[in-house]
Amino acid sequence: MEWINAIVQGVLLGGLYGLFAAGLSLIFGVMRLVNIAHGDLIVLAAYLALVVTQALGIGPLPSLLLVVPLMAVIGYGLQRLLLNRALGDDLLPPLLVTFGLSVIIQNGLLEVFSADSRRLQAGAIETAALPLGGGLAIGVLPLLQFGVAVAAIAGLQLLSWRTPLGRAFRATADDPEVARLMGLDNRHVFALAMALSLAVVALAGVFLAVRTNFDPAIGPARLIFGFEAVIIGGLGSLWGTLAGGVLLGVAQSIGAQIDPGWQILAGHLLFLLVLAVRPEGLFPRLRG
């Protein structure tokens, strides 16, 4: 029963990792940008939600109605004003710019919000659980978080394959030069991709901030799980990213069941195994 519990909790945790990873996967797919500031943007979204909940006196979940669009606007502006200027044939300059961005966000948050450990309080739902019998219980919040992760990824998938915007994303990803010849404005397409990425980041930030405490320095530690989920699932594949997150979560909780010291290690080992056996990931969409 303990093992079933470990797997169930691992799957639910995987939803959070999927949310961490989906935004990374999307922008890597569209513009080959590795966003080192992704973890710090998750923390930024959490602080934004903190301000919104305190200012308006609403709960963390309703605050998403404001935080998601706000983060999307930040993403659009960030891409148009900063990252587009760094993009080019070389992968390194945008990487360095996002690295700098990570340092700036961390210290900016420290200046404004201090180093206090914060959390978003969601009231009774925080510890509400659905009993499954046999001592098993699923937290309502982790379940909701998993549902939102599935919905967000399904939404991004639909958008990618069923809408003109998705076609523009895929066209620009395949060949930016030809896409421009066809009348697409790359700068605008990239900025929209970043806006979507940060909208998902906002979901991740709010759920993270309800689940645990956050302070300005925790971003980078969250980034690594996002990266691992992307690599395990396969570059550029959205469902693969969710699967990668779930596998990572399950590996960690099974590792913890054997010995808590193995929790993070088990996730890293799975990551290394996938890199060694299938470097393109389990469900790759991009090749070459």
């Binding site: 470990a6 909790q9 691992g10 945790l13 959070l16 925790i218 979560g249 069941q257 808590p260």
Partner: peptide
Amino acid sequence: DTGRYQPGANDFSAQISAFKA
């Protein structure tokens, strides 16, 4: 004592079930 966990762990289900047991 279930053993040393890694700081920054996102899941404590294993410890919780051991404590309950």
